[in-house]
Design a protein around this nucleic acid. Structure first.
Lengths: 192, 192, 192, 192
DNA sequence: CATGAATGAGGATTCATTCAT
DNA sequence: TATGAATGAATCCTCATTCAT
């Protein structure tokens, strides 16, 4: 048991190190040896947990993505106020972007780069199923524009990624007021 | 003269090869030797035109960015119909994303990755100055939300990048109709 | 233990190979790959023991120099016959030059070339401290000319290096008789 | 004529550049391109005057050596005062070492390194013929120790090279007084 | 004569991965 | 399970040399 526990911790340390190093240096400047060092582990040990570098990054990606989804929809229950539901999800996403900045940044880099195997990248935005459901309802009820999900996502959700990046580069800061305005912009863009 | 001409062509071939290869494989999986081969040039020749790999990518980035700007604002003259002006610019950007797909994709990758030197990335969205001017006017005239430029950009322009990526991955396609709706979404998100 | 032993042997093999190859071809014509091959080791392995080529040569230099010093002063005890003491040291140096010819040649090349980092070369002739002490006494006792140590060294010790080189190039040979005469010349040059 | 003149100047510039750069960086860190640049000439031009890099260094060596010999024996006429003759030559050599420091340093480096082709290195100290003649006389007249020329050279002349190096490395300085003492040491070492 | 552009061969160094322990 | 040492293959880059002009 303690044995297993230790294993899990080691694996986590590796995943964390991967995120941190890839975030700071990019995939191409992150050698396995550095990952090992940061995780306080021998390079050889990595290969007990992952097949190779690609596999390590792929799995890291999938895990972070899953944490993202869990965080965003944790406790979410669709009500019959669609706008409020959307707002709740939107704000959770914003919160994740802000509080789990390094996870968010890692996802962003993987999503916009060929460092992840096509197979691992999963199909686009499927992981946001509850949101897609919401939009489906919204379209049926004529509350939301009849646009492909990707377009809705592009306008109402993806901007948060962009702004997170801009914030990380000190080009811009979220204030309470801007947050409210930004949400309004998101809603305006997709509402009918 | 023919000499100079040939030099320019060689340089261009290198820039083109860089774009193509980085687009397909990412920076880290694009060796100089491959770039050289694709440009029909010896690896050593690259170093006559560029200081090193980083410099090659930086310069390529700056050149593509400049082509983007030129394309987008070519012939643009601010009228006194703000929405129409915005629409013109927006559609030019969309057109660039569609027609110069590989340039657009390259820019996207550079903008969302630490492969470009900070100094080269520096100017951020400044290169869209005429658009920023337009927004300034719009805010003064109470036609556009009083939000930081980065937020306006995130909602009305950046989605085009995302959609270009999605289209490249066959997850979505622009039709005439969607384009009009998408523009409406862009405008809705920023208009007051 | 066997592990450590093997490591030490590998390191030594690298140092030996460096000496041999630099002696025969000079620094600039001694690629790391050849050093590796001669030491029966992969090129990458060199970098487990040394930071880079410069470091390899620097460390080799320091090690050989230290062997030189140890050899020369091994068992030396200053008596109160200064000339005899000097003769003892001088002959040990000659012996080293003759018996450890490749070490001696390597030192010579490093001492007369900018291949060694200044910091590594730094200590100059300080490593011959017992000899410097002897000269100090000799000057105080008016047995030795009151000249800077470097001059004393130039006349009484350095000629041995030159003669070792000449011998290596078959221009000259030490015989028993010449040795005695040569020592006399050394002593004559510095004695008062 | 002016044509020829210009050629000679270009050749000289190349030789000078070679000396300077090899002195400062060593042979292995002196690329042809740098030599060309310092001589204000295209790299290709070097090959009009020299067969290749080795030839350039060889010829430079031979030229400098010849200047050395000319300088040292310029106007020298053997008198019948052997010690005075020796002193004259010795001091000319010292003067060359001091005044033509860079030439002297270059010779030193070539003499103690495998950068010069064996054939070009000529046989040892043959170029000092007048000095060798002097020593011959001295030995016959029982004024000078009956030692091989190389030994005499090692003790009475070579120290000047060593001291020149030491001076260049700021470990020691020639003063008027030391010079006289140093000459005395030289003479003492070889006189009977 | 002179050149600047071009290059192929080679060099130092790195790194993902393996293996003996 | 865990490791540190070891490595072959690859990568970036340099440089002596050539060639078209």
């Amino acid at each position: 048991m303690a044995r297993l526990q230790k294993s899990i911790e080691k694996r986590n340390a590796l995943v964390q190190a991967t995120i941190e190093l890839v975030n700071n240096n990019g995939f191409h400047a992150t050698p396995m040896s550095k990952i090992a060092k940061m995780a306080c582990v021998s390079p050889a040990t990595i290969y007990l947990y992952f097949e190779n570098k690609q596999d390590l990054v792929n799995q890291t990606y999938l895990e972070v993505k899953s944490q993202y989804t869990n965080f965003v929809f944790d406790g979410f229950k669709a009500s019959n106020n669609l706008k409020q539901d959307f707002e709740a999800i939107w704000k959770r996403i914003l919160q994740f972007n802000t509080e789990e900045c390094s996870y968010s940044f890692f996802l962003h880099q993987c999503n916009n780069t060929p460092i992840i195997d096509e197979p691992s990248r999963e199909k686009g935005i499927k992981h946001l199923q509850p949101l897609l459901d919401l939009w489906k309802r919204g379209k049926e009820d004529k509350l939301i524009k009849s646009l492909p999900d990707h377009v809705l996502y592009a306008y109402s959700i993806n901007p948060l990624s962009f702004l997170m990046m801009a914030q990380k580069q000190n080009q811009f800061y979220f204030t309470e007021e801007i947050t409210e305005e930004a949400f309004k912009a998101a809603w305006d863009s997709i509402k009918l």
